[in-house]
């Protein structure tokens, strides 16, 4: 049987000796959309960042495999080359470097690592323009410095634009819906939905159910205090909407 795209087993992670993740088990197959929901401080962002290999975290035990390979042994760029993409909750500004140049450098870094030929500007630009249109972004954004002077919504859109250009195997979206008005949310969701496909898995990390009205997940997991306390189908998100995380927390302490 084919191994799952992502397999997390009993993952424990701490920051400054403070235990954040207390035993996560999760399996994600190609073609699936998973949503990880939970209250603030439950460890959602930590999980997203550990999987994309930010080194501020200490893995105490457990493992995470990407296509059967040890994801936790990879550097951030190696994880990226292997197909992991993180849409940042707080996208970072890179002054003086244009969006187009940045993305072409990223695309070519990936291609080089995978033994493919680099893409020329002539090949890159038409593809880039097409993705800009998908996300209803202005062509002018190509030449603006990465995220510099972007509004909150533009930054989030820019993350999804990068995802569309880089075509990852495993996309992790960290609170992509926060700070978006309803129109921007719709556009971002459209971009994400366009990326759904049999070869790709998407993990949507969110606090609110709102985004899931537009991106309907196959699976929903509820993360409370570093543990997944419940898993289910999309109906679980709606249940949460009505009862809140409070009832879940109660059920964990009872367990």
């Amino acid at each position: 049987m084919k191994s799952p795209l992502l397999e997390i087993r009993n993952l424990h992670v701490s920051v400054d000796r403070h235990q954040i993740l207390k035993g996560i088990d999760l399996q994600v197959n190609a073609g699936e959309v998973h949503s990880i929901m939970g209250p603030n401080g439950s460890g959602k962002s930590t999980l997203a960042q550990v999987l994309s290999r930010r080194d501020a975290y200490e893995v105490n035990s457990g493992e995470a495999l990407l296509n059967g390979e040890d994801l936790l042994a990879m550097k951030p760029e190696e994880a990226a080359w292997a197909g992991v993409f993180l849409a940042f909750q707080y996208p970072v500004e890179v002054p003086g470097i244009s969006n187009a140049y940045f993305l072409r450098t990223a695309v070519n870094a990936m291609r080089k690592a995978r033994g493919l030929e680099e893409m020329s500007a002539m090949e890159f630009l038409p593809m880039f323009r097409e993705k800009l249109r998908l996300l209803e972004m202005d062509d002018k954004l190509m030449n603006r410095s990465v995220n510099e002077g972007f509004s909150g919504g533009e930054k989030k859109r820019n993350e999804i634009l990068q995802m569309a250009v880089l075509e990852p195997k495993l996309a992790i979206l960290d609170e992509t819906d926060s700070g978006l008005d309803i129109d921007a949310l719709r556009v971002v969701a459209k971009g994400i939905n366009a990326m759904r496909g049999p070869e790709r898995a998407i993990v949507v990390v969110t606090h609110y159910q709102r985004l899931l009205d537009y991106i309907v997940p196959d699976f929903v997991h509820v993360l409370v205090d570093g543990r997944i306390v419940r898993s289910g189908g999309p109906e679980l998100a709606r249940e949460l909407e009505e009862t809140g995380y409070g009832s879940m927390e109660a059920s964990t302490s009872a367990a």
């Binding site: 290999r53 951030p76 760029e77 990226a80 870094a109 990936m110």
Partner: peptide, 23 residues
């Protein structure tokens, strides 16, 4: 981390940030 997450190696990331700074 942002640049490396996009597949750009550490040394290349520094040089990109510095070149942007000097533009």
């Amino acid at each position: 981390f942002y640049l490396r997450q996009r597949g750009i190696k550490g040394e290349d990331a520094i040089s990109m940030i510095v070149n942007g700074f000097c533009k």
